[in-house]
Design a protein around this nucleic acid. Sequence first.
DNA 1: GACGCACTTGACGTCGACGTAAACGTAAAG
DNA 2: CTTTACGTTTACGTCGACGTCAAGTGCGTC
Lengths: 146, 146
Amino acid sequence: MTTRERTWSIAELAAEFEVTHRTLRHYEELGLIAPERRGTTRVFSKRDRTRLALILRGRRLGFPLEEIRRIVDMYDDQPGRVGQLRYLLGQISDRRADLEARRRDIEDSLAELAELERRCETDLATLRGNRAVPARSQDTPSRTSV
Amino acid sequence: MTTRERTWSIAELAAEFEVTHRTLRHYEELGLIAPERRGTTRVFSKRDRTRLALILRGRRLGFPLEEIRRIVDMYDDQPGRVGQLRYLLGQISDRRADLEARRRDIEDSLAELAELERRCETDLATLRGNRAVPARSQDTPSRTSV
DNA sequence: GACGCACTTGACGTCGACGTAAACGTAAAG
DNA sequence: CTTTACGTTTACGTCGACGTCAAGTGCGTC
C-alpha cells in the first residue's frame, strides 16, 4: 500500500504562508493552484505547497498573477516534443533576462544606498566634532537609490 | 548671470521615459515630483528628471508609489540634526534589508531557471538521439523558479 | 480671427488583487 | 440538540495606479 502523503487544510496553509483563505481561493480561481476536494473541502498536497511557495516568491518580486501562472506552469509542462522544449528554452531565456534586469536595478539601488550612508556617516562625524555640516547641493540628489 | 539650466516639457519627459502625461501628473498629485510652472504649464528641471528615474526604478522593482515617495524624499531631506541623521541611517538599513531579500529571491529564481534549462537541454539531446524521453515526476516540480 | 497644437484641470472608468459580508453545509463538543 | 469551529459559494466593495474622455486655455500661424 502506497505511503499516505501528507496533506494540508486551507487554514494550515494560510497560517504557514501568512496569507488569507481568500487569497488561496483567489489563486485557485485563477488556476494558480488546484487543490483536490474531499467532498467540498479543499485538500492541499505537497505539490500545492510547492507551487504556493513559488507563487509567493513571484508576488514578492512584483509579478502579476497571470504571468506567475504561466511561469509556474512552465515547470509542470511535460516536455513532450522538441518544439515544446525549444519553446520552453525560449521562455527560460526571456525570464532570465527579466530577472537579471531586476537584479541590476537592485544592485544599483544598493550601491547608491551605500553611498548615501557613507555621506551620512561623515556628516554625523562632522556634527560630533561640533563643526558645521557642509550644505550639500539640493537640486541634484547627487546619486540616489530606490 | 547664472547659467540657464535645461528644462523639459511634459511631452519631452514622457517620451524620454516612455510614460504617459497622465502618469507624470499622477506622480505630481502624489507629491513624487514637483515641477515648476510657467504660467499653468509644467516645467521639469534636471532634478525632476533625476527623481523620475528613481521613481521608475522603484516601480520596476514593484514598490508602491507611497513608499517610493518616502524613499526618494530621503535623499532630499537636509540632514539637519543628529537625530535626523540617525533616523536616515535607520531607514537606509531597512531599505537595504528589503533589497537584499529581493536579491536573494532573484538569485534563487535564476538558479532554478538554470537547473530547469539544464534538464531541458538533456531532454532535447535525448530526443535528438531518438531515445525515449524519461518521464519525470509530475507531482513535485523538483525545484522550480519564479 | 479661426485653426491647430500643446498644455491644463476635473472627473469618471478600469483592472488587478484581493477584502468583506451574507448565507449556508458539516461535524465534533458540550 | 444547539453551539462552536471550520469550511464553502456568491457577490459586491476597495485600493492603487493609472486610462480615458470632456472641456477649456494660451500661443504661434495662416
